[in-house]
Design a protein around this nucleic acid. Sequence first.
DNA 1: GAGTGGTCTAGACCACGAG
DNA 2: TCGTGGTCTAGACCACTCA
Lengths: 245, 245
Amino acid sequence: MVIRPVPSRRHAIAEDLRYRISSGHFKPGERLPSETQLATHYKVSTSTLRSALALLQGESLVDKIHGKGNFVRRPLRRITYAGGVAALASWTAFSAPSRLTVRTATIEAPSHLTTLLNVPPHSSLTEVLFATHEGKTPQGLAHIYVPNDLAPITPPLPEQIVVRQADFLPPPLSEVHERVTARLPTGEEATTLRISCSLAVLSLTRVVTDDVGRVVEAALLVLPGDRADAVFTARPTTDKRSSKE
Amino acid sequence: MVIRPVPSRRHAIAEDLRYRISSGHFKPGERLPSETQLATHYKVSTSTLRSALALLQGESLVDKIHGKGNFVRRPLRRITYAGGVAALASWTAFSAPSRLTVRTATIEAPSHLTTLLNVPPHSSLTEVLFATHEGKTPQGLAHIYVPNDLAPITPPLPEQIVVRQADFLPPPLSEVHERVTARLPTGEEATTLRISCSLAVLSLTRVVTDDVGRVVEAALLVLPGDRADAVFTARPTTDKRSSKE
DNA sequence: GAGTGGTCTAGACCACGAG
DNA sequence: TCGTGGTCTAGACCACTCA
């Protein structure tokens, strides 16, 4: 069924390693033989072997660690970002148990945020940086921006606490707007999330508006594609139907 | 601010090319000098030069075409998938003008679909395959599955027509559930969408349920990450029939 | 057939991690 | 220090496109 015109050397090797991993010949967490050994075994040059490993790395089957070796990935606990109104409940709409690292700052709105937040240039914003972790593995990054004129943060925010606009100032919110894209991480994101540069990330922009159209919060989230997904649930407006339950 | 401990040769070259592209020295649609020429110019081997180009390719700045050359990407018209209830209106919730390629078939539900559709094994399904195009550029893939016992397709479906469950059998729908992930495309997806293997895609699973909990439709969508995003808009239940404020 | 990118080699040397 | 992966070289040969 699948055509295999010229199975290049590296694809053949990747396929063999894939099989050995899935069949348990190499077990999760285990170190693979060194690249030199594997290259010798498959009778290819190290570059070719490395390009085979790069395929597996892109599939999140293998973790390369400089100076240590290539390791079979442990299956990852999946995390789920609940979008829509659910996202307002708490940042830990995330399913897994997680630690939070929080950093806040007051900044002048840079240009790409003024349009998003619909505020004048150089407005004062509060920026909240989140990083969620489970053990040592980072699970996601979040930059949350709140216009200061809407949310004068009276008490200095304590660290390690979930802070969200909706938590301490419950205004009449009218809309949660979320835009999702897929891309490769920036170098910075890759190192912070401890993921490979070739692993896709979910990039999510959330804008929360109150009932007079003011933007109450803008959030930029980055989630590693190998373990995270986002779910959105909507119900058609049941206006004309009797809302029997 | 950004640390540059050892700017590897390929990153330096990529940076230079990036600059030349953004400054207009190389214009959109234009062919770059051949890899051999560039390698000579930068005084590196062809492999190194190719790995520099691979970076730009991953950023969707450059299109490699075998036998022809490397081309500066034209800026892409962005397409937007409108999620939630809006997705029910029409598959062409897609913003851009597009052609559709449709293929339908009746199949036995494979195992991964029985759980999604909540139907018994080997149930009869109608499978609808979509590919949207704008000109020659594919914009997205969709596999839509409809249980046949819910939707006996009486007339054979005409090709080139938008077919959606909601279009010809408007049931009392109760819920649209969408799950979004980011990943790299499979080889097949990459060739169908004419994208590079290193370009992330948005993968979207949509499940539509009617008011008695039956799954009316399941859709698997794949959208190229360089031009597509998905938006979801939700309003907190501002129901007037709510008893509590 | 001429020119392009795609794959691969058989090395060299550098950078990181751990003992 | 030693073994690991990371970068790079200077080629060879193959596959694709187009005139």
